[in-house]
């Protein structure tokens, strides 16, 4: 765990689990296993969280809750499916109200097996999630910043499209579907800020390949 420098915070949501895994997730925080000594804290606020631990499978009622929590979490974020129900549906797979594992709704990075998943397995899974978090952070940092001209032409293309439907000129530095174009390029930012971000991003314009991985999760 030496590679992670910040304390990862966890948010836990009980999908439709039987409580076994939830209680084991909580047991990880208590003196016997005590993950808080690594700076891991269970938070109730999705906007504070780095790792999303979800127990139990997905059903009609909780599908929107799970999506909401996931969307509210800031990037980079990692999802860990705890227990066999979250992984595949487990013993409840054939129930009429079960849609399957968590990966039917949101992308999952780490699968933690077990019924119920043991605290040791959960801690192991969280450590694996830290690795995934670190990779995602690196990918996020290495993501190409779009140059000033590209942003201008992107804006131009968007407005052209809406006015007369003519095919836009391809920008010099194309914006790939995986790239997360920051909002400030689309208007609100002042000219100073734009110039600043252009200066920052001028070097890394060509590393499209490495950004592809992080883009997949957002699609």
């Amino acid at each position: 765990m030496s590679y992670i420098t910040k304390s990862p915070w966890i948010i836990h949501y009980d999908g439709s689990s039987c409580n076994g895994c939830d209680i084991e997730v909580l047991a990880c925080l208590t003196p016997m296993y005590d993950v808080e000594r690594f700076g891991i804290i269970n938070t109730g606020n999705p906007k504070h969280a780095d790792i999303f631990l979800i127990t139990g499978s997905i059903n009609e009622q909780n599908i929107s809750v799970v999506k909401q929590i996931y969307e509210q979490m800031p990037e980079p974020k990692v999802v860990a499916a705890v227990g066999i129900c979250a992984t595949s549906g487990g013993i409840f797979k054939e129930c009429y109200n079960i849609m399957g594992g968590v990966d039917t709704v949101i992308p999952v990075d780490v699968y933690i097996p077990g019924c119920a998943a043991r605290p040791e397995a959960i801690i192991d899974g969280v450590v694996a999630a830290l690795g995934a978090l670190d990779e995602k952070k690196k990918a996020l940092d290495a993501r190409p910043k779009i140059s000033d001209t590209a942003a201008d032409s992107a804006m131009g293309a968007a407005s052209d499209d809406s006015v007369d439907g003519a095919p836009p000129e391809p920008p010099e530095d194309p914006i790939l579907p995986g790239d997360d174009v920051e909002v400030k390029y689309y208007g609100a930012a002042s000219e100073d800020e734009e110039a600043e971000s252009a200066a920052d991003g001028s070097g890394g314009g060509q590393e499209e390949g490495s950004a592809g991985d992080s883009g997949k999760e957002e699609a």
């Binding site: 439709s16 009622q61 909780n62 129930c95 009429y96 109200n97």
Partner: peptide
Amino acid sequence: IGFIHRGLEKLVEK
């Protein structure tokens, strides 16, 4: 309620 309804009583048929 109903956020974690699974319908496991019906599994008795399987």
